[in-house]
C-alpha cells in the first residue's frame, strides 16, 4: 500500500513539475496580461519567424495560438466577451466574416484599411486582407502539354476520374461563391453536378490534390497557387512534376482569396493590437509573405515574386469574400449537389 501511495505521489509531483515546464513551454511565452494574443489560422512555420521580426519592430510582446482558421473562429465565437484573443489572423476571409457578423471584431482605422485595395478588405472595415492567393489549376504536363484555360474544361468526359477538388476547403467554397455570382445559380449547379458526375475525386485539402497530381493519380486539380511553391521548396523542383495554370479572362477559377486580420472587439490591448495589424500591413511583413510563401502582397509598392504573374494581371471575379449569406448559399448548393 505504501508503495502504491508513493507511486501516486511521485507521479503527481512529476505532473506538477511537468505542467510548470509545459505551461511555460515557450519560456518567455508564458501568459501575461500585457501581451497581445493572436489567434492564428496561419501555420506556425510560416508565421513564427515573422512574429519574431514583429516583436523587434513594434516592441509589442506577442503570443500566438496556432490552429485551424475555422476552428479558431468557432472557439472565438464560443469564448464571446471573455476571449483572451486580441487579433485574429485568418487563413481565409470567410472566418473573418463569420466573426464580423457576430459583432466580434472592431472596425480598423481608415488609415490601415486604405493600404489594401477595397476588394480585399471588409466593407464594414472590420478586417483587412494581408496577403492574396490565387485559385489555380494544377496539372500534370506529362499528360497534358497544353495548360488548361478554364474550369469549364474540367467537365469534359475525357477527364473522368482525373480531376481532384476539396469541397470542404474554404478556398474552394469561395471559388464556388464566385462561380455562383459570376455565372448564376443554375450554371454553378450545372457545373458542380457535371463535375461530380464526371467522377471528380474529393480530397481533404489542397496538399492532397497536389500530391495526387504529382504522383500521376489525377491529371488536374483545383488548388491555391502557393501550395505548389511550398512543395517545391520542401521537395525540390525535380520532385514536383506538376505545373500551375493561372486562368485568364475572368474565369471564376482565377479568384483571388485573401488571408486577413482583424482586431477582436473585447481586446484589452487595442493600441498594441493595432500595431500588430499595421505591422502585418507594413512593407516588412508584406515582403515576407511575397518571398516566403509566394503569396501576393496586397499593399502597394511591394514586389511580387518574379515567378508569378502580377496581381493586376489576374482577372478573377470580384466578389465580397466575407459575405456569409452568400457563403451559406454556396454551402446550400454544395449540400444540394451532395458534396458536403
Amino acid at each position: 500500500m505504501r508503495r502504491l501511495l508513493a507511486t501516486v505521489l511521485a507521479s503527481a509531483t512529476l505532473l506538477i513539475s511537468a505542467c510548470g515546464g509545459g505551461g511555460g513551454g515557450g519560456g518567455e511565452e508564458s501568459f501575461d496580461d500585457e501581451s497581445v494574443v493572436i489567434y492564428s489560422g496561419r501555420n506556425k512555420n510560416l508565421l513564427g519567424p515573422l512574429i519574431d521580426k514583429m516583436k523587434t519592430a513594434t516592441g509589442v510582446n506577442v503570443q500566438v495560438r496556432y490552429g485551424d482558421s475555422a476552428e479558431l473562429a468557432a472557439q472565438l465565437l464560443e469564448e464571446g466577451d471573455r476571449t483572451r484573443a486580441d487579433v485574429f489572423f485568418s487563413q481565409d476571409a470567410g472566418a473573418l466574416g463569420a466573426l464580423a457578423k457576430e459583432g466580434r471584431l472592431t472596425a480598423l482605422p481608415q488609415g490601415s484599411l486604405d493600404k489594401v485595395p477595397a476588394k480585399y478588405r471588409a466593407a464594414d472595415g472590420t478586417w483587412a486582407g494581408v496577403s492574396g492567393r490565387s485559385r489555380v489549376i494544377v496539372y500534370d504536363p506529362r499528360v497534358l502539354p497544353e495548360q488548361p484555360k478554364s474550369v469549364f474544361e474540367l467537365t469534359d468526359p475525357k477527364w473522368s476520374g482525373k480531376v481532384g477538388w476539396a469541397p470542404t476547403n474554404a478556398s474552394f467554397q469561395a471559388f464556388v461563391t464566385a462561380l455562383r455570382v459570376v455565372q448564376g445559380e443554375e450554371k454553378a449547379k450545372e457545373w458542380l453536378t457535371a463535375m461530380k458526375n464526371n467522377g471528380t475525386k474529393t480530397y481533404p485539402n489542397n496538399v492532397g490534390i497536389l500530391n495526387a497530381v504529382d504522383e500521376g493519380q489525377i491529371t488536374m486539380g483545383l488548388i491555391n497557387h502557393y501550395y505548389w511553391y511550398e512543395k517545391v521548396a520542401e521537395k525540390g523542383a525535380a520532385a514536383v512534376p506538376s505545373k500551375l495554370a493561372f486562368l485568364p479572362g475572368g474565369d471564376p477559377g482565377a479568384l483571388v482569396n485573401v488571408a486577413g486580420a482583424g482586431i477582436v472587439k473585447t481586446s484589452k490591448h487595442a493600441a498594441n493590437a493595432q500595431k500588430v495589424v499595421d505591422y502585418l500591413l507594413g512593407a516588412e511583413a508584406q515582403k515576407y509573405f511575397a518571398d516566403e510563401t509566394k503569396e501576393y502582397p496586397l499593399v502597394a509598392g511591394v514586389a511580387v515574386d518574379p515567378g508569378l504573374p502580377a496581381l493586376d494581371s489576374l482577372k478573377g471575379p470580384e466578389i465580397d469574400l466575407a459575405r456569409l449569406d452568400s457563403l451559406s448559399k454556396t454551402l446550400d448548393l454544395l449540400k444540394e449537389v451532395g458534396l458536403v
Partner: peptide, 18 residues
C-alpha cells in the same frame, strides 16, 4: 496554454505546411 507545443501540435504544424 498559449505558446505551449506538444509533439502532436508540432507534428500538425509541420505536416500542415507540407
Amino acid at each position: 496554454p498559449t505558446g505551449m507545443e506538444t509533439l502532436a501540435t508540432e507534428l500538425w504544424t509541420q505536416t500542415g505546411s507540407g
